[in-house]
């Protein structure tokens, strides 16, 4: 057997390897990899883990991190449930205006966050069209409270679950649903025991995407949040505040704390994914 030379790439007559790989690696390095490495270097080597822990382990920072992750989880859970429901409605039902509704689901992807921020604030402020109604009927304040943050994050994360679940619903084999009915299951049982488990992996993917997006969200939140330290001050805002004080180490520490928690969460979701795929035998 001839000795094979070690190579990163399998041989192929396809042209353009050097050029395409070169452009990709250069740009990826300049825009993503080197800046990320600088952040991590600055944090773990320059500032040190102990120093970062000291920054993070203060009530104001801790409260901001807790708020960011709690609000993101609440908003993403809402989007998980509502997203599956909306995807179902958009795939299975016919109703007037369906195409417009379907297109509008992507509005949060297309609308700049600052626009969403001031618009949501305008309607949920105590003198806004929904804000005043909620205030008068239920005594509920939305803008400048944590609920306002939830609303902004629900807005931002709305399309993710819908868009991941929609294609899966489209591909459900009708015979599977019919089989459940012929075995005596009610429609509700078919939905909860047969269809929902089939949607779960995609829904979870959408949930993870929405969570990742809303944890770090800044533009749509700061207008509606009120930004009161320890109460409605989100972690990204605290990074901005540290930067404005030229406290770079403080900003780096909070940023790395956010990254660590985010990646832990996403890793957990990924593990659940792998487990559920394996359960289904991943055909």
């Amino acid at each position: 057997m001839a000795a094979r030379t070690f190579s990163v790439r399998a041989p192929t007559p396809m042209p353009g390897w050097g050029l395409s790989f070169g452009i990709m690696l250069t740009m990826l390095s300049v825009v993503v990899l080197i800046p990320m490495a600088v952040l991590l270097w600055r944090g773990f080597v320059g500032f040190g883990a102990a120093g970062m822990w000291e920054v993070v382990n203060r009530p104001r920072v801790w409260n901001a991190l807790e708020l960011s992750f709690r609000a993101a989880l609440i908003a993403s859970l809402f989007n998980l449930v509502f997203g599956v429901l909306l995807a179902w409605v958009l795939v299975r039902y016919r109703f007037p205006g369906k195409r417009i509704v379907d297109a509008a689901v992507d509005l949060p992807f297309a609308l700049p966050t600052a626009v969403a921020g001031i618009a949501l604030t305008a309607i949920y402020a105590p003198n806004g069209m929904f804000g005043s109604a909620l205030m008068q009927s239920f005594g509920l304040r939305v803008a400048y409270t944590e609920i306002g943050i939830w609303i902004a994050l629900i807005f931002v994360g709305l399309p993710f679950v819908v868009r991941t679940v929609q294609p899966v619903i489209e591909e459900i084999d009708r015979e599977t649903e019919e089989a459940s009915a012929t075995l005596g299951a009610s429609r509700l049982r078919t939905l909860t025991h047969v269809i929902l488990p089939m949607l779960a992996p995609a829904a979870l993917t959408g949930f993870a995407l929405a969570l990742a997006r809303s944890v770090g969200e800044y533009g749509s939140v700061i207008f509606i949040a009120g930004n009161l330290p320890n109460v409605t001050e989100i972690a990204p805002l605290l990074i901005v505040i540290r930067l404005e004080e030229f406290d770079y180490d403080g900003a780096v520490a909070i940023a790395i704390a956010m990254l660590v928690i985010s990646f832990a969460l996403l890793l957990a979701i990924n593990l659940i994914q792998i487990w559920s795929r394996r359960r289904m035998g991943a055909a």
Binding site: V8, R9, R213, Y218, I239, V252, F263
Partner: peptide, 27 residues
């Protein structure tokens, strides 16, 4: 168009900005 080692990693890195706060990106 090519098969090479480390492809999965590169795809992960390309996606990385999706899960990073814009504020951290500025930082």
């Amino acid at each position: 168009k090519f098969d090479w080692r480390g492809k999965a990693w590169v795809i992960t890195f390309i996606d990385l900005p999706f899960s990073i706060s814009p504020v951290v990106a500025g930082l």
